[in-house]
Amino acid sequence: MTVRVDGVDYEFSSLEEAVRFALKMAKSKGAEVQLHNGTFHVE
């Protein structure tokens, strides 16, 4: 599972870890999280 934040990809071994990271980053940026074909994008 890959989480992309500001064009940088972060790899996670589990969906749970990836979701937690994506939500944490989105909250800190006041951004939204989108899921596309198994890849999260924080914008």
Results as ranks from 00 to 15, higher is better:
V33P: 03
Q34I: 14
S28I: 14
K27G: 09
K29P: 08
D6Q: 04
F12W: 01
K24I: 12
K24V: 10
E17M: 05
H36T: 07
T39G: 12
L15Q: 06
E43C: 15
N37C: 15
G30R: 06
M1T: 10
R20C: 15
T2G: 02
S13Y: 07
G38W: 07
V19D: 02
R4E: 04
E43P: 07
T2F: 13
H36F: 12
V3Y: 02
A22K: 02
T39H: 15
E16A: 12
N37F: 08
A22E: 01
K24M: 13
V8W: 05
M1A: 11
D9Q: 06
G38F: 10
T2Q: 04
E16Y: 09
H36M: 11
F21I: 01
V42I: 08
E17R: 03
R4M: 06
A26R: 04
L23K: 11
E43V: 15
A26H: 04
Q34A: 09
A26K: 04
E16R: 09
E11N: 12
Q34V: 15
A31K: 08
S14R: 04
V8K: 08
V5Y: 06
G38D: 08
A22T: 01
A22L: 08
N37A: 04
L35G: 06
K27I: 12
M1S: 05
A31C: 14
H41P: 13
R20Q: 11
V42H: 07
M1P: 07
K24F: 12
K29F: 11
R20V: 07
A18P: 00
Q34Y: 15
V42Y: 06
R20A: 12
F40S: 10
K29A: 08
E32P: 06
K24H: 12
N37Q: 04
K29T: 12
K24L: 11
F12G: 00
V8C: 15
E16P: 03
L35I: 12
G7T: 01
E11H: 14
H41T: 07
E17Q: 06
E43L: 14
M1I: 14
N37T: 06
V3S: 00
L15W: 13
V33E: 03
V19M: 13
L23M: 10
E16Q: 09
H41S: 04
E32H: 13
R20D: 12
A18Q: 00
A31P: 03
G30S: 06
G38R: 03
A31G: 11
G38L: 10
V5G: 00
L35M: 11
R20T: 07
F12M: 01
D9W: 09
K29G: 08
D9G: 03
A26Q: 05
F40L: 15
E11S: 12
K24A: 13
V42P: 11
H41C: 15
K24Q: 13
L35F: 14
G30T: 06
D6G: 08
M25H: 05
S28T: 11
S28A: 13
L23P: 04
A26N: 03
M1K: 06
V5D: 00
E11F: 14
M1E: 01
G30I: 05
